[in-house]
C-alpha cells in the first residue's frame, strides 16, 4: 500500500439520481471499508448516510458495492480491495437507494416471506424436543445453507434479479431450501408451490454470482438446484396444483 491517504469515491444521492463525491481518508493499518466510510461521516461530512450495526460480520447490515463488487464492508480490508490506493463505494445493486449508501431492503425481505421462509412446525411446547441426527442427509443439506446473515450481497450479485423484478433471489430460495430440509417443518407443499415457476427456482441460470460473492461461502445455486429437483418431484405427484 503506497501513500498514507486513500482516495475514496462515494456515491451520494437519493433514489436514482446521484453522483460520486471524492474524499481523502487517512490510511490506517487493518483498516476496513466500513472504517473508511465511518471516518468520512464522523470527520468530513456528517450528512453521509450508510447502514451498519455489529461491525464484526454477524448482522449483515453493512453490505455495499466496493470497487464494483458487492461486499460486507466491515470484514473487507482496504488492503485487499484498494491495491492502487483508490476505493469506490456505492450502494448495493438491485435494491432501491434510500440515500447515499443506504438501500431499502423491503423487497429483499418481502421475498423471503413470499418464498415461505417462515418455519412452521406442528409441535407445541408440551412436546419433547425433536431428535434430528447431525449425520442425516436432510440435516446436512439444511446445515449447508443455514448460516445466511441476510446481507443482500447475493441478491446484488444476481443478474436474474436485475432483469426479472419478480425473481425471489438467491437468499430467499436458499432459506426455503433449508426449511424444505427441516424435518420438523410441515409447510413443504405450499413452500414448493411458492418457489416454483419463473419467479422462483426455475428462473435461476446457475451463473453462480451468488456463490462467488457470498460472504459466508454458502452455495445458493446448489440450494436452488435442490428446489428444482424437489419441485419437479412434487409436480410429478401432482402436488403443485
Amino acid at each position: 500500500m503506497s501513500g498514507d491517504t486513500l482516495t475514496v469515491s462515494v456515491w451520494r444521492g437519493d433514489g436514482d439520481v446521484g453522483r460520486y463525491q471524492e474524499f481523502e481518508v487517512p490510511r490506517q493499518e487493518s483498516q476496513t471499508v466500513l472504517d473508511v466510510v465511518t471516518y468520512i461521516q464522523r470527520h468530513i461530512d456528517p450528512t453521509l448516510s450508510y447502514r451498519f450495526a455489529c461491525r464484526v460480520g454477524v448482522c449483515g447490515s453493512c453490505a455495499m458495492t466496493v470497487n464494483g463488487k458487492p461486499r460486507w464492508t466491515c470484514r473487507t480490508h482496504v488492503s485487499k480491495v484498494a491495491g492502487d490506493g483508490r476505493l469506490e463505494v456505492a450502494p448495493l445493486r438491485n435494491l432501491q437507494v434510500i440515500k447515499d449508501l443506504s438501500v431499502d431492503m423491503t423487497d429483499f425481505f418481502d421475498k423471503w416471506a413470499r418464498a415461505e421462509g417462515r418455519f412452521q412446525g406442528a409441535q407445541t411446547r408440551d412436546d419433547d424436543f425433536a431428535q434430528v441426527s447431525p449425520d442425516s442427509p436432510k440435516r446436512r443439506r439444511a446445515s449447508a445453507g443455514i448460516e445466511c446473515i441476510g446481507c443482500g450481497v447475493c441478491y446484488a450479485s444476481c443478474d436474474v434479479v436485475a432483469w426479472n423484478q419478480d425473481y425471489l433471489g438467491p437468499a430467499a430460495l436458499n432459506r426455503a431450501w433449508t426449511l424444505v430440509n427441516d424435518v420438523r417443518d410441515i409447510a413443504d407443499k405450499q413452500r414448493l408451490k411458492a418457489v416454483a415457476g419463473d419467479a422462483g427456482c426455475h428462473a435461476c441460470h446457475s451463473q453462480q454470482g451468488c456463490v462467488e460473492r457470498c460472504v459466508k461461502h454458502l452455495n445458493p445455486t446448489q440450494s436452488i438446484a435442490g428446489l428444482k429437483r424437489a419441485t419437479a418431484l412434487a409436480a410429478l405427484k401432482g402436488e403443485l396444483e
Binding site: 416454483a196 415457476g197 419463473d198 419441485t231 419437479a232 409436480a235 410429478l236 403443485l240
Partner: peptide
C-alpha cells in the same frame, strides 16, 4: 406476479431435463 400454472412449469422443466 401472475402464476399461470406452477405445476405445468415444473413439469416442463423436468421434461427439458429428461
Amino acid at each position: 406476479m401472475s402464476a399461470p400454472n406452477i405445476q405445468t412449469e415444473a413439469r416442463l422443466w423436468l421434461a427439458q431435463r429428461v
